[in-house]
Design a binder for these strands. Structure first.
Lengths: 139, 139
DNA sequence: TATTGTTATACTCTATAACTATA
DNA sequence: TATAGTTATAGAGTATAACAATA
Protein backbone atom coordinates (compact mmCIF):
# COMPACT_ATOMS: atom_id res chain seq x y z
CA UNK A 1 0.00 0.00 0.00
CA UNK A 2 1.41 3.33 -1.09
CA UNK A 3 0.59 5.05 2.17
CA UNK A 4 2.82 2.58 4.00
CA UNK A 5 5.87 3.69 2.05
CA UNK A 6 8.62 5.15 4.18
CA UNK A 7 8.61 8.51 2.37
CA UNK A 8 4.92 8.89 3.03
CA UNK A 9 5.25 7.86 6.67
CA UNK A 10 8.09 10.33 7.31
CA UNK A 11 6.21 13.16 5.64
CA UNK A 12 2.99 12.61 7.50
CA UNK A 13 4.62 11.78 10.81
CA UNK A 14 6.27 15.17 10.55
CA UNK A 15 3.03 16.87 9.58
CA UNK A 16 1.10 15.31 12.43
CA UNK A 17 3.76 16.12 14.96
CA UNK A 18 3.89 19.70 13.70
CA UNK A 19 0.17 19.98 14.26
CA UNK A 20 0.89 19.24 17.90
CA UNK A 21 3.92 21.47 18.31
CA UNK A 22 2.89 24.59 16.40
CA UNK A 23 -0.11 25.54 18.55
CA UNK A 24 2.00 24.97 21.65
CA UNK A 25 4.76 27.23 20.42
CA UNK A 26 2.48 29.97 19.22
CA UNK A 27 2.07 31.66 22.64
CA UNK A 28 5.83 32.13 22.68
CA UNK A 29 5.80 33.87 19.34
CA UNK A 30 7.86 31.31 17.47
CA UNK A 31 7.27 28.41 15.13
CA UNK A 32 8.98 25.06 14.87
CA UNK A 33 11.69 26.23 12.51
CA UNK A 34 12.54 29.15 14.77
CA UNK A 35 12.63 26.79 17.72
CA UNK A 36 15.21 24.77 15.80
CA UNK A 37 17.40 27.82 15.34
CA UNK A 38 17.14 28.91 18.97
CA UNK A 39 17.94 25.40 20.05
CA UNK A 40 20.96 24.98 17.83
CA UNK A 41 22.33 28.29 19.11
CA UNK A 42 22.17 27.07 22.70
CA UNK A 43 25.84 26.11 22.81
CA UNK A 44 28.70 26.94 25.20
CA UNK A 45 30.57 28.75 22.42
CA UNK A 46 28.61 31.02 20.08
CA UNK A 47 28.13 29.91 16.48
CA UNK A 48 28.40 31.87 13.27
CA UNK A 49 25.36 32.03 11.02
CA UNK A 50 27.00 29.56 8.67
CA UNK A 51 27.82 27.10 11.43
CA UNK A 52 24.25 27.24 12.69
CA UNK A 53 22.92 26.71 9.17
CA UNK A 54 25.16 23.71 8.60
CA UNK A 55 24.08 22.05 11.82
CA UNK A 56 20.44 22.45 10.82
CA UNK A 57 21.24 21.46 7.22
CA UNK A 58 19.65 24.58 5.82
CA UNK A 59 21.09 27.01 3.32
CA UNK A 60 22.93 30.03 4.63
CA UNK A 61 20.55 32.30 2.73
CA UNK A 62 17.67 30.73 4.61
CA UNK A 63 19.48 31.33 7.87
CA UNK A 64 19.72 35.06 7.11
CA UNK A 65 15.93 35.38 7.15
CA UNK A 66 15.56 33.23 10.24
CA UNK A 67 18.09 35.27 12.21
CA UNK A 68 16.48 38.49 10.94
CA UNK A 69 13.14 37.34 12.33
CA UNK A 70 14.52 36.15 15.65
CA UNK A 71 16.57 39.30 16.06
CA UNK A 72 13.46 41.35 15.36
CA UNK A 73 11.73 39.52 18.19
CA UNK A 74 14.64 40.18 20.53
CA UNK A 75 15.45 36.50 20.90
CA UNK A 76 18.93 36.50 19.37
CA UNK A 77 21.64 39.05 18.71
CA UNK A 78 24.28 39.31 16.02
CA UNK A 79 27.77 40.53 16.72
CA UNK A 80 30.86 40.50 14.56
CA UNK A 81 33.42 37.77 15.11
CA UNK A 82 36.44 39.42 16.78
CA UNK A 83 39.06 37.76 14.60
CA UNK A 84 37.18 37.41 11.29
CA UNK A 85 34.94 40.27 10.38
CA UNK A 86 33.23 38.31 7.62
CA UNK A 87 31.43 36.29 10.27
CA UNK A 88 28.38 37.09 12.33
CA UNK A 89 28.27 35.34 15.64
CA UNK A 90 24.71 34.76 16.74
CA UNK A 91 23.82 34.46 20.40
CA UNK A 92 20.65 33.94 22.37
CA UNK A 93 19.49 36.95 24.34
CA UNK A 94 18.25 36.50 27.88
CA UNK A 95 14.73 36.57 26.50
CA UNK A 96 15.79 34.06 23.86
CA UNK A 97 17.02 31.68 26.55
CA UNK A 98 13.77 32.00 28.47
CA UNK A 99 11.75 31.40 25.32
CA UNK A 100 13.85 28.39 24.42
CA UNK A 101 13.39 26.96 27.88
CA UNK A 102 9.60 27.25 27.78
CA UNK A 103 9.44 26.07 24.18
CA UNK A 104 11.54 23.04 25.00
CA UNK A 105 8.92 21.93 27.48
CA UNK A 106 6.27 22.34 24.80
CA UNK A 107 8.29 20.22 22.39
CA UNK A 108 8.89 17.53 24.98
CA UNK A 109 5.20 17.31 25.74
CA UNK A 110 4.21 17.25 22.08
CA UNK A 111 6.67 14.46 21.32
CA UNK A 112 5.42 12.49 24.27
CA UNK A 113 1.82 12.87 23.15
CA UNK A 114 2.74 11.94 19.60
CA UNK A 115 4.55 8.79 20.70
CA UNK A 116 1.88 7.82 23.21
CA UNK A 117 0.43 5.08 20.95
CA UNK A 118 3.73 3.20 21.20
CA UNK A 119 5.10 1.15 24.09
CA UNK A 120 7.93 3.06 25.78
CA UNK A 121 10.56 0.64 24.49
CA UNK A 122 9.38 1.01 20.92
CA UNK A 123 9.26 4.78 21.21
CA UNK A 124 12.85 4.84 22.39
CA UNK A 125 13.92 2.48 19.64
CA UNK A 126 12.21 4.70 17.09
CA UNK A 127 14.14 7.70 18.37
CA UNK A 128 17.43 5.83 18.31
CA UNK A 129 16.82 4.38 14.87
CA UNK A 130 15.93 7.77 13.39
CA UNK A 131 18.95 9.28 15.03
CA UNK A 132 21.20 6.74 13.34
CA UNK A 133 19.53 7.35 9.98
CA UNK A 134 19.94 11.13 10.28
CA UNK A 135 23.35 11.71 11.79
CA UNK A 136 24.25 15.10 13.25
CA UNK A 137 25.85 17.46 10.79
CA UNK A 138 28.18 20.40 10.58
CA UNK A 139 30.76 19.45 13.25
CA UNK B 1 20.34 18.87 20.91
CA UNK B 2 17.90 20.52 18.51
CA UNK B 3 18.84 18.29 15.63
CA UNK B 4 17.74 15.24 17.63
CA UNK B 5 14.19 16.53 17.89
CA UNK B 6 11.60 14.29 16.31
CA UNK B 7 10.36 16.95 13.88
CA UNK B 8 13.87 17.47 12.61
CA UNK B 9 14.52 13.73 12.31
CA UNK B 10 11.30 13.14 10.36
CA UNK B 11 12.00 16.02 8.03
CA UNK B 12 15.54 15.02 7.24
CA UNK B 13 14.86 11.31 7.12
CA UNK B 14 12.32 12.14 4.43
CA UNK B 15 14.75 14.41 2.61
CA UNK B 16 17.53 11.84 2.64
CA UNK B 17 15.27 9.05 1.50
CA UNK B 18 13.95 11.25 -1.30
CA UNK B 19 17.50 11.82 -2.45
CA UNK B 20 17.70 8.07 -2.95
CA UNK B 21 14.31 7.55 -4.57
CA UNK B 22 14.07 10.52 -6.92
CA UNK B 23 17.04 9.65 -9.14
CA UNK B 24 15.79 6.07 -9.31
CA UNK B 25 12.32 7.14 -10.43
CA UNK B 26 13.54 9.67 -12.95
CA UNK B 27 14.09 7.16 -15.79
CA UNK B 28 10.42 6.25 -15.50
CA UNK B 29 9.36 9.86 -15.90
CA UNK B 30 7.73 10.23 -12.50
CA UNK B 31 8.66 11.68 -9.13
CA UNK B 32 7.90 10.44 -5.65
CA UNK B 33 4.58 12.23 -5.38
CA UNK B 34 3.41 10.81 -8.67
CA UNK B 35 4.51 7.37 -7.55
CA UNK B 36 2.29 7.82 -4.52
CA UNK B 37 -0.71 8.58 -6.71
CA UNK B 38 -0.08 5.65 -9.05
CA UNK B 39 0.33 3.40 -6.08
CA UNK B 40 -2.83 4.50 -4.32
CA UNK B 41 -4.77 3.94 -7.53
CA UNK B 42 -3.62 0.34 -7.73
CA UNK B 43 -6.81 -1.05 -6.17
CA UNK B 44 -9.27 -3.75 -7.23
CA UNK B 45 -12.05 -1.17 -7.52
CA UNK B 46 -11.26 2.18 -9.13
CA UNK B 47 -11.18 5.29 -6.94
CA UNK B 48 -12.58 8.74 -7.55
CA UNK B 49 -10.17 11.66 -7.47
CA UNK B 50 -11.48 12.62 -4.07
CA UNK B 51 -11.06 9.15 -2.64
CA UNK B 52 -7.50 8.99 -3.92
CA UNK B 53 -6.78 12.42 -2.43
CA UNK B 54 -8.17 11.43 0.95
CA UNK B 55 -6.08 8.29 1.11
CA UNK B 56 -2.96 10.29 0.38
CA UNK B 57 -4.12 13.07 2.73
CA UNK B 58 -3.72 15.72 0.09
CA UNK B 59 -6.20 18.36 -0.96
CA UNK B 60 -8.54 17.58 -3.83
CA UNK B 61 -7.27 20.63 -5.71
CA UNK B 62 -3.77 19.22 -5.49
CA UNK B 63 -5.03 15.92 -6.85
CA UNK B 64 -6.41 17.66 -9.95
CA UNK B 65 -2.94 18.74 -10.99
CA UNK B 66 -1.41 15.36 -10.20
CA UNK B 67 -3.98 13.50 -12.28
CA UNK B 68 -3.58 16.05 -15.08
CA UNK B 69 0.14 15.33 -15.16
CA UNK B 70 -0.22 11.56 -15.00
CA UNK B 71 -2.93 11.58 -17.63
CA UNK B 72 -0.68 13.69 -19.85
CA UNK B 73 1.98 11.01 -19.51
CA UNK B 74 -0.50 8.28 -20.39
CA UNK B 75 -0.20 6.59 -17.01
CA UNK B 76 -3.76 7.08 -15.78
CA UNK B 77 -7.14 7.71 -17.36
CA UNK B 78 -10.22 9.55 -16.13
CA UNK B 79 -13.71 8.34 -16.82
CA UNK B 80 -17.03 9.46 -15.41
CA UNK B 81 -18.58 7.46 -12.61
CA UNK B 82 -21.57 5.62 -14.09
CA UNK B 83 -23.97 6.39 -11.25
CA UNK B 84 -22.72 9.80 -10.13
CA UNK B 85 -21.58 12.11 -12.87
CA UNK B 86 -19.95 14.51 -10.41
CA UNK B 87 -17.19 11.97 -9.90
CA UNK B 88 -14.15 11.16 -11.98
CA UNK B 89 -12.97 7.63 -11.57
CA UNK B 90 -9.23 7.41 -12.13
CA UNK B 91 -7.62 4.21 -13.32
CA UNK B 92 -4.12 3.10 -14.19
CA UNK B 93 -3.48 2.51 -17.86
CA UNK B 94 -1.53 -0.52 -18.95
CA UNK B 95 1.51 1.71 -19.21
CA UNK B 96 0.72 3.06 -15.76
CA UNK B 97 0.70 -0.43 -14.32
CA UNK B 98 4.03 -1.22 -15.94
CA UNK B 99 5.51 2.02 -14.65
CA UNK B 100 4.20 1.38 -11.17
CA UNK B 101 5.67 -2.09 -11.17
CA UNK B 102 9.13 -0.89 -12.14
CA UNK B 103 8.94 2.10 -9.80
CA UNK B 104 7.94 -0.14 -6.92
CA UNK B 105 11.18 -2.04 -7.31
CA UNK B 106 13.06 1.26 -7.22
CA UNK B 107 11.28 2.28 -4.04
CA UNK B 108 11.94 -1.06 -2.38
CA UNK B 109 15.62 -0.83 -3.17
CA UNK B 110 15.87 2.77 -1.99
CA UNK B 111 14.17 1.96 1.30
CA UNK B 112 16.44 -1.00 1.80
CA UNK B 113 19.52 1.11 1.17
CA UNK B 114 18.24 3.83 3.45
CA UNK B 115 17.60 1.39 6.30
CA UNK B 116 20.86 -0.49 5.76
CA UNK B 117 22.53 1.14 8.81
CA UNK B 118 19.98 -0.57 11.06
CA UNK B 119 19.78 -4.20 12.14
CA UNK B 120 16.91 -5.91 10.33
CA UNK B 121 14.84 -6.18 13.50
CA UNK B 122 15.18 -2.49 14.23
CA UNK B 123 14.32 -1.58 10.66
CA UNK B 124 11.14 -3.61 10.86
CA UNK B 125 10.25 -2.10 14.20
CA UNK B 126 10.80 1.38 12.78
CA UNK B 127 8.39 0.61 9.94
CA UNK B 128 5.79 -0.80 12.29
CA UNK B 129 6.09 2.08 14.74
CA UNK B 130 5.75 4.69 12.01
CA UNK B 131 2.80 2.84 10.60
CA UNK B 132 1.04 2.99 13.96
CA UNK B 133 1.82 6.70 14.31
CA UNK B 134 0.47 7.47 10.83
CA UNK B 135 -2.63 5.33 10.40
CA UNK B 136 -4.12 4.80 6.95
CA UNK B 137 -6.70 7.37 6.01
CA UNK B 138 -9.75 7.79 3.83
CA UNK B 139 -11.44 4.38 4.26
C1' DT C 1 -28.18 22.51 -0.01
C1' DA C 2 -24.12 19.46 -0.35
C1' DT C 3 -20.57 17.28 -3.06
C1' DT C 4 -17.01 16.80 -6.84
C1' DG C 5 -14.07 18.62 -9.86
C1' DT C 6 -11.96 22.70 -11.54
C1' DT C 7 -9.55 27.22 -11.85
C1' DA C 8 -7.26 31.16 -10.16
C1' DT C 9 -4.59 32.66 -6.74
C1' DA C 10 -1.64 33.18 -2.82
C1' DC C 11 1.32 31.59 0.68
C1' DT C 12 5.23 29.01 2.71
C1' DC C 13 9.57 27.04 2.34
C1' DT C 14 13.63 26.67 0.15
C1' DA C 15 17.45 27.20 -2.97
C1' DT C 16 20.35 29.56 -6.83
C1' DA C 17 22.79 33.51 -8.64
C1' DA C 18 24.93 37.61 -8.00
C1' DC C 19 26.78 41.22 -5.01
C1' DT C 20 29.68 43.16 -0.95
C1' DA C 21 33.05 42.81 2.45
C1' DT C 22 36.40 40.64 4.18
C1' DA C 23 40.22 37.13 4.29
C1' DT D 1 40.88 33.45 -4.98
C1' DA D 2 37.85 31.82 -1.38
C1' DT D 3 34.57 32.60 2.34
C1' DA D 4 30.49 34.81 5.01
C1' DG D 5 26.68 37.38 4.79
C1' DT D 6 23.23 39.55 2.10
C1' DT D 7 19.68 40.50 -1.52
C1' DA D 8 16.74 39.51 -5.26
C1' DT D 9 14.46 36.09 -7.37
C1' DA D 10 12.41 31.84 -8.72
C1' DG D 11 10.71 27.31 -8.11
C1' DA D 12 8.30 23.62 -5.50
C1' DG D 13 4.47 22.27 -2.95
C1' DT D 14 0.41 23.28 -0.93
C1' DA D 15 -3.99 25.27 0.37
C1' DT D 16 -8.12 28.67 0.16
C1' DA D 17 -11.89 30.82 -2.32
C1' DA D 18 -15.01 30.87 -5.87
C1' DC D 19 -17.42 28.64 -9.64
C1' DA D 20 -19.85 24.90 -12.56
C1' DA D 21 -22.05 20.67 -12.79
C1' DT D 22 -24.45 17.35 -10.51
C1' DA D 23 -26.78 15.17 -6.68
Amino acid sequence: MSTRRLVHLFKHAGLRLSELTEPGLEPYGIDGREFGVLSVLNTPEPLSQLEAAQRLRIDRTTMVAMVDALEGKGLVGRRPHPGDRRKNMVELTERGRETLSAATRVMDEAEEAFLAPLPADDAQLLRDALSRLVPPSGG
